[in-house]
């Protein structure tokens, strides 16, 4: 059986790259501490492959035929997609894929009752994978990546309970279907509060974000699921905050564990609350 050796949740707001130099010191410090800690912990865990769950942001499919989950099967991934380069303001990156793990995941999740979609060719990536990659310098490692792009923004989308259950199925797939000795990392990429393209584009809900980070870091998932509902996410920012559903998948996969976060900033020009969590995989889940 394969093993989950690392799990984290991080935001992917493009402005943490593009406006980093214009941000006040305290906001820059949180960004640097968060992505720095995630990058170091990821390397220390020595994973062979990382599964990154992230909002697709309507980047790969039309709104009239929109999949809830797409697993990237390609042997290599690259980004950002052309139109997003200047918007994010980041360098080009390339990552090795893992077609075998992608295929095992696709088969295993389908078998366990989850409608997934497989993309054999190149997926288009925007900030969803670009920001975590460049901010943790993931592309300077040899870790293989399987992206799982998720619908967090085209209603109706899979809710917290469904995403958590998907995470539990991901864990079973890793434990039962993937080869012994394979070291797997999980990253949920999305959030915190934001309303991209909406009337509250510059509004950040710090109260929601602080509660979310606190509950995500505690080994009491019943409390987390009770408080972090879709209506509360939408209240904190329509069409963007629900990206935290990517964290639900990771939390479902690892079970109730304590996590560490590295500060929080709600600087308005980031147009997104910023904070992350690395969960403790060394101890057994509660």
């Amino acid at each position: 059986m394969a093993e989950i050796v690392f799990a984290a949740g991080i935001p992917h707001a493009p402005a943490v790259v593009g406006l980093f130099d214009k941000a006040p010191d305290e906001a820059r410090a949180v960004v640097a501490a968060t992505f720095g800690a995630v990058g170091r912990a990821l390397r220390a865990a020595r994973p062979d492959v990382v599964l990154v769950f992230a909002n697709d942001h309507l980047t790969n499919s039309r709104i009239t035929a929109y999949p809830d989950f797409i697993i990237g099967h390609a042997a290599a991934h690259a980004g950002p997609h052309e139109w997003f380069k200047e918007w994010i303001g980041c360098r080009d990156w390339a990552l090795p894929g893992d077609p075998e793990v992608a295929r095992t995941l696709f088969k295993g999740l389908t078998k366990r009752g989850f409608r997934m979609n497989a993309e054999a060719g190149p997926l288009k990536f925007d900030d969803n994978l670009s920001v975590p990659t460049v901010m943790t310098e993931l592309d300077s490692t040899t870790i293989r990546v399987v992206p799982i792009l998720q619908n967090c923004t085209v209603p109706p989308f899979p809710d917290g309970a469904r995403c958590y259950a998907l995470g539990q199925a991901v864990a079973r797939c890793i434990a039962e279907d993937m080869p012994a000795g394979l070291r797997v990392a999980l990253i949920g990429s999305g959030g915190l509060s934001h309303e991209p393209g909406g009337a509250r584009y510059y509004k950040i809900d710090e109260e929601f974000d602080q509660l979310f980070l606190k509950l995500a870091s505690e080994p009491d998932h019943a409390a987390f699921m009770r408080e972090i509902t879709i209506p509360r996410m939408e209240q904190a920012g329509l069409g963007g905050t629900a990206e935290v559903l990517s964290w639900f998948i990771v939390m479902g996969a690892i079970g109730q564990r304590r996590g560490e976060s590295f500060g929080y900033t709600g600087w308005p020009s980031f147009r997104c609350g910023i904070g992350g969590v690395v969960w403790d995989m060394a101890k057994e889940a509660a």
Binding site: L58, I63, T153, E195, P196, G197, Y201, L238, G239
Partner: peptide, 9 residues
């Protein structure tokens, strides 16, 4: 959809 509205802008 606001996300696509933001991109249109």
């Amino acid at each position: 959809h606001p996300y696509l509205g933001g991109q249109l802008s």
